[in-house]
Design a protein around this nucleic acid. Structure first.
Lengths: 187, 187
DNA sequence: TCATGTTGTTTGATATAATGTACTAAATGA
DNA sequence: TCATTTAGTACATTATATCAAACAACATGA
């Protein structure tokens, strides 16, 4: 969950170190001021795409060499860093365990509904597929004007391009594990 | 040779049109202001990497979907659009026919030397390979403290990571076609 | 030892990225 | 026809990206 400009900072600094280049050298090569380069490396600046392009182009490396995060072997998502998404509805909480990442092309989150809560998803504007596991409670799902009832321990899979509605008709808590796959990959 | 922010403009506008989304909708999805989106689409703004990331991430598309140029079938490089690179030396002119492009990983240019002109290349800070064809005149090339003489109609290939020097020892014009391949690919 | 480079940071000035609000024009519907 | 919504643009304001020049810290060498 590193900020993109921090990723750039890290990548640029690492590259420059590896090549044993000074800020001055990179500045000459890319036409970007020494000051800016220094600030970018310290993540104190949010470079414009034009500046990033000048850097990648001047150094003859792909843009993605600056923007793509170096993969760690393991990613342990700790409770304390999991900040719920604001859905605008008190009764519904979403925990983004693995938010959408372009490299993987999917996202994985947990949705929790209080009793009698309803949530409308507008649809994803992409070829996308949604996989839902019901951890606890009972889910009613409206897809294409048809209601489906998925009980605790069950699961459902559907094309989620179009709008669909989640409903907890019971008075007890409903908890779902949701995975959404999108089409386009790479970065 | 389109500017990067023009590429982004085109890609974003095209994507939004394809998905039949309004600026408002994209703004809600991405958390980027309608105004900014409009300006980006009109290439009136140079978005920061953070804004681009918010867009790509909010729309669930890769960054490269915004930054990579849509390929045309044919690219005719016309004389009138070929602006020589300033080498800091009046006697040497470089015509960048196909400047470095991250997708291809190479560049192709023509170098022209007046009589008795010398040019030092600092080396490319990358695994790179240089291919030189002598179109006209005679080239003397210093690689790794060894001089090579390449005559009109001949060619040479070498690892160009390290510094090397081009020299026109004659009094007549020297013209080269140079291709440089770099390692890293993709974007 | 002093002078001269080299490397990265700080400073101050300017351009412009980014936002929210207000506005115009077009589409929709009763 | 008039009112209401929707879609994009224009405007004013704030935040900040970008640069050139000055600076400090350290190395280099004569």
């Amino acid at each position: 969950m590193k900020q993109i400009h921090e990723v750039v900072a890290q990548n640029l600094a690492a590259y420059r170190a590896k090549q044993h280049m000074s800020l001055d050298k990179v500045s000459k090569l890319t036409g970007v001021s020494k000051t800016m380069l220094s600030q970018i490396e310290k993540a104190e600046s949010n470079p414009t795409i034009t500046v990033l392009w000048k850097i990648s182009s001047g150094l003859r490396i792909p843009l993605s060499a600056l923007t793509s995060e170096v993969e760690t072997k393991v990613d342990h998502i700790r409770r304390e860093y999991l900040t719920p998404i604001d859905t605008g509805n008190e009764a519904i909480t979403i925990y983004p365990y693995f938010p959408f990442d372009t490299k993987r092309g999917f996202e994985l989150f947990v949705m929790e509904f209080d009793g009698k809560a309803t949530f409308l998803s507008e649809g994803h504007y992409q070829q996308s597929e949604e996989y839902i596991l019901v951890n606890e409670g009972e889910l009613q799902l409206l897809i294409d004007r048809e209601w489906h009832v998925i009980r605790e321990g069950e699961a459902i899979r559907f094309q989620s391009d179009a709008a669909h509605t989640y409903k907890n008709a019971t008075n007890t808590r409903l908890s779902l594990t949701v995975t959404v796959f999108y089409q386009e990959k790479n970065d």
